[in-house]
């Protein structure tokens, strides 16, 4: 009675799809909790050093962060379009949209890299001599910034790999239920959402 593509414990493909989607959502919930720790730390830091935090945030390249927010949001849009396209049976469009998302994601990483390089030159990386920092709070802030955005960048990289895998997978593109693409897109949206929270926490805090 098994339909094509149905795997072991499942008898019906629809049920398996529901299960996979639920599994993905639960996984994302646990990812949210992972970043929750970073946000809690940022909150504590800000409450304890209100002035220092704002000063330190002021030193981030706000316009690079803003550009990156735009890039990532657009990329997320592409992923959503890919899901729609796959649902409509437009496998080719789906591939285009996916590659678009990959390209924009790569741009995001590139911009982030430029930003990191700048901070490296200024000597603001964790573990570097403390003399370059204006104060301890700035050092603390920059360290947290690196941990937060670094962990996020790892997720971006991982998401890019998933997006590329989905784009290369013909079966996934032709799947009218957009299962694989749908799940990958969900992951990508999460990566996006996390950034949407990191951005105000780190960059916008410095806007006076």
């Amino acid at each position: 009675m098994a339909e094509g593509g149905v795997q072991e414990p499942f008898a019906r493909a629809a049920r398996q799809r529901e299960a996979e989607r639920l599994g993905m959502l639960i996984f994302l919930a646990s990812e949210v909790m992972l970043f929750g720790g970073i946000f809690a730390a940022a909150l504590a830091l800000r409450l304890e050093h209100p002035a220092g935090y704002v000063d330190a945030a002021h030193h981030l390249k706000l316009w690079l962060g803003t550009a990156n927010t735009g890039v990532l949001l657009t990329s997320s849009l592409c992923a959503a379009l890919a899901v729609q396209a796959a649902r409509n049976g437009q496998a080719r469009w789906a591939a285009c949209a996916l590659w678009g998302a990959v390209a924009l994601g790569t741009v995001f990483l590139a911009i982030k890299g430029v930003e990191y390089a700048g901070e490296y030159r200024e000597g603001l990386m964790p573990g570097m001599a403390t003399t370059h920092f204006e104060g301890r709070t700035q050092q603390l802030f920059m360290n947290l910034y690196f941990i937060g955005t670094g962990l996020h960048a790892v997720h971006v990289t991982f998401g890019l790999a998933l997006l590329a895998a989905a784009a290369l997978n013909r079966g996934a593109r032709q799947d009218r239920h957009a299962m694989l693409i749908g799940n990958v897109a969900l992951y990508w949206h999460l990566v996006d959402v996390i950034w949407v929270f990191l951005y105000p926490t780190l960059y916008l805090a410095g806007v006076r």
Binding site: A40, A41, A44, L45, E48, H49, G52, P126, G127, R136, T137, Q139, L140, N143, L144, F146, I147
Partner: peptide, 17 residues
């Protein structure tokens, strides 16, 4: 490993966190 200081009072971090 790299002394990020979130929990280290010497950098203004918070051990209770």
């Amino acid at each position: 490993l790299i002394g990020i200081g979130v929990f280290d009072p010497r950098l203004g971090g918070d051990p209770l966190l």
